[in-house]
Amino acid sequence: MEEQAALNNEVKPKIGQNRTTSFYVKKYAMIFVGAVIAAFGLEEFLIPNNVIDGGIVGVSIMMETITGMSMGVFLVLLNIPFLFMGYKQIGKNFAIATLVAICFLAVWSEIFDPLEKVTDDPFLAAIFGGIIDGIGVGMIIRAGGSLDGTEIVAIIMDKKSVFSVGEVVMFINLFILSSAGLLYGWDKAMYSLVAYFVISKMIDVVIKGLDESYAVMIVTNEHEEITSALNDRLGRGVTLLHGAGGYTGESKEVLYCVVTRLEVDKLKEIVLDKDENAFVTINAVHDIVGGRFKKKSIH
Rank of each mutant, 00 (worst) to 15 (best):
K208R: 13
V205N: 07
V162I: 15
D133H: 11
G166I: 07
G246R: 10
I207W: 01
R236I: 05
V153Q: 00
F123R: 01
L147C: 07
Y191I: 07
T239N: 07
K160G: 09
A229V: 01
S192H: 03
K208S: 13
S192E: 04
D158A: 13
H242F: 08
S192F: 04
I156W: 08
H223M: 06
G237R: 13
T150H: 03
T239R: 13
T239K: 12
R236Y: 06
I155D: 02
A126H: 01
M217V: 12
S213C: 12
Y247G: 03
A229S: 15
I172L: 13
M217N: 12
L241G: 02
T227D: 06
I226Q: 01
G246A: 11
L177G: 02
F175I: 15
T150C: 00
A195M: 03
G185A: 12
D158P: 00
G149M: 05
E167P: 04
L210K: 08
I140C: 06
S164E: 08
H242R: 13
N173R: 11
G235C: 14
S228E: 15
K201T: 10
Y191K: 08
G249R: 12
V137K: 01
S179R: 05
G138S: 08
S200Q: 10
T220S: 15
S228C: 06
E224G: 03
V198R: 01
A154M: 04
G245A: 10
T239I: 07
V219Y: 00
I199M: 05
G246N: 09
N173W: 11
I155N: 07
D121E: 14
H223L: 02
G209F: 08
G249I: 13
A215H: 10
G249C: 12
G185N: 14
R233N: 10
L230Q: 03
V165D: 00
N221M: 10
K159V: 05
H223I: 02
V198C: 02
L230Y: 01
L240C: 04
S164C: 09
